[in-house]
């Protein structure tokens, strides 16, 4: 058993535990915090795959910025424990067996058809310089389009979350 496999298994165990904990917890803040654990462990997996840039962005943007947004909204809305209703029982009865079947099928197909070739670390030039070369050369148009997307998303979020005219007047 080599060192990378041990690291993979350790990070993978954190990922699996966090994902199961996300499902088991009833309070949204616990789910969000276990998702942060999953993301941090995934950053470790990216490092094992030689993707340093993606690992850094995963920690800074995903586990940092996006999850702060989630936690902030949970605190802002004072979200409590969820209550179960008829709909959720039907969803558990149908959803869990369906997803178990689906994931077993997926695992079987992957193990059968993908072979066991290795992923060599360091063989891939995951250097930020090479990423930038791709991003600002081959993918320049999608990059600019995503900046427009982000701009539209910011404006949409401001419009949606801002107080209506009458309510805003009352506050002042």
């Amino acid at each position: 058993m080599n060192f990378h496999l041990v690291l993979f298994l350790a990070f993978g165990a954190v990922c699996v535990g966090g994902a199961i904990n996300l499902l088991a917890q009833r309070h949204p803040i616990n789910s969000a915090l276990s998702l942060i654990a999953v993301m941090a462990a995934l950053a470790g997996e990216y490092l094992l795959l030689g993707a340093e840039f993606v690992a850094a962005v995963q920690v800074i943007v995903y586990a940092g910025a996006i999850m702060v947004l989630f936690v902030f909204v949970i605190m802002l809305l004072n979200a409590g424990e969820e209550e179960h209703t008829n709909g959720s029982r039907v969803a558990i009865l149908l959803g869990v067996p369906g997803m178990l079947t689906g994931s077993v099928l997926m695992a079987w197909v992957m193990l059968r058809h993908s072979g066991t070739e290795s992923v060599p670390i360091g063989a891939l030039p995951g250097h930020p310089k090479d990423i930038a070369q791709l991003l600002f050369h081959d993918f320049l148009l999608p990059f600019e389009v995503t900046s427009v997307l982000i701009l539209i998303a910011i404006m949409g979020a401001v419009v949606l979350a801002s107080q209506p005219e009458s309510a805003a007047g009352k506050v002042d």
């Binding site: 060192f3 990922c15 094992l48 993908s114 072979g115 066991t116 290795s118 992923v119 063989a123």
Partner: peptide, 12 residues
């Protein structure tokens, strides 16, 4: 080089 099979990553 590390030798973690691709299918392990896909399973996770």
């Amino acid at each position: 080089p590390s030798y973690v099979p691709l299918s392990y990553y896909l399973l996770l």
